[in-house]
């Protein structure tokens, strides 16, 4: 089913490309090459997939709990800010202390930022659709303030912070590529969230709230606690994503540190029916889409923002197919 959705989305995008005067038959092969031509391009795909997997796996948990968490973007920023702060100010610590500290700080701040929206929901019944988006803006604007103000490297330079201490840099494991252990952490987190969601009673409670909050309450499940917990874990994963981006790739904080990972992650999760472990596959897929579209932009001047639209169309195809799945299957089997 996800495969059909991708094919449909690429076909629709091909029409858009044609109308805009580009040749999809020229563009798509370049896109493919940009992602899969050699070890270097594929390692870049995995680097892009790393935040997508972390954020996507986290989101799948909240979606399963019936919470529309659109705030992964802001939680990612919260994580990257705190990771940078720790990475700069404790640069003298040895790596084996600093790296866990930085990652933990990032995860914790992402969790707290998400729990704020969770708290507003359970305490004031404030719709998380709106609050998470608003908190995204607050986090992004605050980051903008930090990198042009108190944390700016130099008053005459770029809007960015100084580099974090080298001891906080995540080790790379496949030189000469830039692939770092953050990718492995992402795989681990996706697995852990999967186990939590499907193999533990806590996960059962979270899913029960998502299926029918009222019934869960009657069954003695603490709905509020589960919502806060789901938000905390989801935000923690997103914050960890932000911390890993800083410590694995950019080594510093700047204004637009996320090209919209938090929104891509929504598609990453939905494409695989909110299955945390399967976000590894959809994360890599969307990472490839991003990498490939950047190649497309470099070679053919096709604006890479088109990727957002492709992801939106993927989501629409997925939901449409999931509704009609039975009918489509019947149609095939009757033939």
């Amino acid at each position: 089913m996800p495969v059909i959705a991708i094919v449909v989305a690429l076909l629709v995008s091909a029409v858009v490309l044609l109308v805009a005067g580009y040749d999809p038959l020229e563009a798509y092969p370049i896109m493919w090459k940009g992602a899969f031509s050699d070890q270097r391009t594929f390692s870049e795909v995995l680097l892009k997939a790393t935040p997508l997997i972390l954020l996507g796996a986290g989101l799948s948990l909240t979606f399963r709990c019936g919470i529309v968490n659109l705030g992964a973007e802001g939680q990612f920023y919260a994580g990257s800010v705190v990771a940078t702060l720790i990475g700069i100010n404790f640069a003298n610590l040895p790596s084996y202390l600093l790296i866990p500290l930085v990652l933990l700080g990032g995860a914790l701040s992402g969790a707290l930022w998400a729990m704020l929206a969770g708290y507003l929901k359970v305490r004031f019944n404030a719709s998380e659709v709106v609050t998470t988006i608003m908190l995204n803006y607050v986090a992004i604007i605050f980051t903008g303030y930090l990198v042009t103000g108190p944390m700016q490297e130099s008053k005459v330079g770029f809007p960015q912070t100084a580099q974090i201490g080298e001891a906080a840099w995540l080790p790379r494991f496949l030189p000469p590529t830039r692939l770092h252990i953050g990718f492995l952490i992402a795989l681990l987190v996706a697995l852990l969230i999967y186990i939590l969601l499907f193999k533990t009673s806590t996960g059962y409670g979270i899913r029960a709230v998502g299926i029918n909050a009222e019934a869960a309450r009657y069954a003695g499940i603490n709905v509020r606690r589960n919502i806060l917990l789901a938000m905390a874990i989801s935000g923690g994963a997103a914050g960890l994503g932000g911390a890993i981006e800083v410590t694995g790739l950019t080594y510093r904080l700047f204004q637009m540190i996320s090209p919209g990972y938090g929104f891509d992650a929504i598609a990453v999760s939905l494409l695989v029916n909110n299955n945390p472990i399967a976000t590894v596959l959809s994360g890599i897929l969307f990472g490839a889409l991003r990498s490939g579209s950047e190649m497309m932009q470099m070679n053919l001047k096709v604006p890479s923002v088109l990727v957002s639209a492709i992801q939106g169309i993927v989501i629409l195809s997925v939901v449409a197919f999931s509704v009609y799945r039975d009918k489509i299957l019947k149609w095939f089997t009757e033939r």
């Binding site: 939905l270 923002v305 957002s308 939901v319 999931s322």
Partner: peptide, 20 residues
């Protein structure tokens, strides 16, 4: 289809298509 999911998709399409 789930209205929230469709809405989220519309936001992505709006952002991507207009930027493109």
């Amino acid at each position: 289809a789930n209205q929230i999911v469709v809405g989220a998709a519309f936001n992505m399409i709006g952002t991507g298509l207009t930027g493109f």
